[in-house]
Amino acid sequence: MAISLTVNGQKRSVDIESDTPLLWVIRDELGLKGTKFGCGAALCGACTVHLNGTPIRSCSTPVSAVDGQEITTIEGISGSTTLHKLQQAWVDHGVPQCGYCQSGQLMTAAHLLSYNAAPTEDEIKTAMSGNICRCGTYSNIVAAIQSVAGSEGEA
């Protein structure tokens, strides 16, 4: 079926089976490889993107369910020349190890700050509990979020 999406602010259209997970549309049809395949079952969070500003697991979301809606991926959270403040914090705190889960971690963290500008440590841990990191970068993730929590404005 023909699907229209706004991805990172750009209108995109694809013609594809309606049950194709959004993840594979983003990665293989639109060529945005920053969003990762981890489990295919909404269990690990590596594929997290924003649907109209809210995190979803793209590996388990059929593309037909998001027809006509707005998707933001890791490639879309920074400005054209500037990093999202969380991305800068990730670099400053040396968060990524293997790095494979970090796009999903960042998308979840960015959403957290969008509704709670100054989360407590417990609120951060709870919000981030759906994103697995096999390298165990969790404490650096929390420290990076805390370093920008409460600062003004989005990048």
């Binding site: 060529g31 945005l32 490889k33 920053g34 969003t35 990762k36 395949f37 991926t73 890791i74 490639e75 920074s78 990093l83 991305q87 990730w90 670099v91 400053d92 040396g94 968060v95 990524p96 790095g99 494979y100 970090q102 796009s103 960042l106």
Partner: peptide, 21 residues
């Protein structure tokens, strides 16, 4: 002095095997 691969891995631009096209 930080990790040299942190920027690529925080912007989704680091290429893993699964990303090869």
């Amino acid at each position: 002095r930080g990790r040299l691969d942190a920027l690529a891995k925080s912007t989704g631009t680091a290429e893993y095997g699964i990303d090869v096209e």
